[in-house]
Design a protein around this nucleic acid. Structure first.
Lengths: 129, 129, 129, 129
DNA sequence: GTGGTCTAGACCACA
DNA sequence: GTGGTCTAGACCACA
């Protein structure tokens, strides 16, 4: 299900978080779908259970998954809350940093905008959300 | 000149790198301008000289500044080298991650594209490139 | 494994880098081999961990080794990337300097060519490439 | 006469030494030729007199130039002494290091040998010394 | 004065 | 356990 790259600079637990969110965003995983237990996933992707556990805790904190004691772990219902200013700032900072690096690497503005568009489409479909 | 936040998650030396690049990209710092010595900057922003030195070395490696032993450190001439595939991948990954997080936070696609445009303009002027 | 000479003009971290590259080039260390941790090596060769760390970071930047946070450090797969013009210039300069010094010391041209050949063979085998 | 690059990683005094030796090796400067005084040269190439002085002292130590009090500085007679084992070792080390770096950068053996040949010719003519 | 190297040691993130 | 960041401070090469 997940493709973890142990050689990546990105921490393993971050890779798990990111990919899980991507699967949800793409609709591969739907609300109330059951996902593997910590032990199952850790043996599937050959990663220390502590690492998976850490990722799951963070995903739960972010409202992406829900763990029900004794029953398993599930994809959470979407809670279309208001957009949080805190999140806006964080994402803005990330984009700003990426644009700065892109600028320095000689990448054109339009190219980066195309990427935003493309990634967004990969996730949510081609509607403007 | 720089505003370092010791409480930030971002390492101090990364903050220095990022802000210095931004000052150059915005034209506040011009090629051949002298920048503060390691010791000067470290006492200005109250950071250990080793940390400043680490930032400066990385900036030099990236071709942003040039250090002349015994003389000081200067902003480098722009070298519009070829765009490196490695850099493209890195920036693409950063944008992908940001888009994913933005999607999750409920930010619209167009909004993120506007940000890319805006940050780019802040840096390089309003020409496409 | 490594023989560090604290009296050498060459910085300690450069000695580590050079010898590690040599071990890889000679095939003593193979891709995916684990190399000593920063702490292990630093206590083996009696050098500060920071110095070893500096060498390892540079080796990683050069693509010789890969470090996996929390797991250890390993020899990287060979990536026969394109020859970079920058590297060519650097090596050319080094050879030019060596030839000038050799000329001054009264060493014959053929002798130096033989050395190049010999060192190359020690490294990569006797094929031309 | 000399072309100093203040942006080079090579120390200024090393650049002076190297270029002066090259001019002698190429025959541009002949034994007993007068070379500029420290002050003259330092103002010509816009370098601190101390730096030129350091280079001249080293050149004198190596027997390349001779300073005569009150008369000026001159190119020394060639002293075709025996090849010193110490020099052989030093040059060998330099070449070994260059070959190692060239190997890693993906440069072919033959190419490096051609460089040795070419640089040697530039210096001494096309005889084998 | 400038930056570069190195040691010593604390504290943190990650697996 | 692993490596990464940071401080503190010594000593050196260079201009």
């Amino acid at each position: 299900m997940l493709r973890i790259d142990p050689k990546s600079q990105l921490p393993l637990y971050e890779q798990i978080i990111q990919q899980m969110k991507e699967l949800v965003a793409r609709g591969v995983l739907q609300p109330n779908d059951r996902i593997p237990s910590v032990r199952e996933l850790s043996s599937q992707i050959i990663v220390n259970p502590n690492t998976v556990s850490k990722a799951y805790k963070e995903l739960e904190r972010q409202g992406v998954i829900i763990t029900m004691r004794g029953r398993g772990t599930f994809i959470a219902e979407f809670t279309t809350e208001d957009v949080l200013p805190k999140d806006i700032e964080r994402v803005k900072d990330q984009i700003q940093k990426a644009v700065l690096e892109g600028f320095y690497a000689g990448i054109h503005r339009e190219e980066m905008k195309v990427w935003v568009e493309a990634f967004y489409k990969e996730l949510g479909g081609d509607q403007d959300d």
